[in-house]
């Protein structure tokens, strides 16, 4: 969906060749999602089939594509339609932690810390990229990566805090007599 709409949005600015579209798509997103040329041409073929783009001449065997009125409407509608987040993509990390806390013998603390270190290293990489000068479009894509990665670290912190609290509560429930004795000696 994002490739199709991305190419269509690029064509809304004026006719372009397939190879130009690929370069523009990658340029604006910092090559975060690389496209292969085949993907670009299959997508253009589908857009043409749906009457959203049309050929506008050719040069040295390359076809120039131009957006149709229907295509313009489609792009305008895309920008104004929110991206739906209610159907989350399968998240391997969330699944892994759900199993780590329920399967016996797993050191959940180590799972969390190891992941946090790896995610922090990724966040450092994105931040290093941010320190270089980039155009606005790529900066915004980078910021999206930064905020998503940060959210994962915050979630891991949250998981750790929840686990610690649960462990403390279990200890209090398991040893009520010892707990009282402790309080008495400290008095």
């Amino acid at each position: 969906m994002s490739v199709k709409m991305g190419l269509l949005a690029l064509l809304a600015d004026g006719p372009q060749y397939g190879y130009q579209l690929r370069a523009e798509f990658e340029g604006r997103t910092g090559s975060t999602w690389p496209l292969n040329v085949g993907q670009v041409y299959t997508t253009l073929a589908r857009l043409e089939r749906d009457h959203l783009v049309e050929p506008a001449g050719s040069e040295e065997g390359r076809v120039l594509y131009r957006i149709t009125d229907a295509g313009q409407d489609e792009v305008a509608a895309w920008f104004l339609t929110p991206v739906i987040r209610t159907q989350p993509a399968r998240d391997e990390l969330a699944i892994k932690l759900a199993f780590a806390v329920t399967v016996s013998g797993v050191d959940v603390g180590a799972v969390i810390q190891r992941q946090r270190t790896a995610t922090m290293a990724a966040l450092q990489d994105y931040t290093r990229l941010k320190r270089q000068d980039h155009d606005l479009a790529w900066t915004l894509v980078l910021d999206a990566m930064v905020f998503q990665t940060e959210a994962e670290i915050r979630w891991l912190d949250h998981c750790e805090a929840r686990l610690r609290r649960a462990a403390t509560e279990r200890r209090v429930v398991a040893t009520p007599a010892e707990d009282t004795a402790d309080k008495e000696t400290s008095r």
């Binding site: 922090m120 450092q124 994105y126």
Partner: peptide, 14 residues
């Protein structure tokens, strides 16, 4: 305590 800020560092110690 902000991961986004810690990421500016060369090393992050937990």
């Amino acid at each position: 305590h902000e991961p986004r800020h810690a990421a500016w560092a060369d090393r992050v110690v937990f």
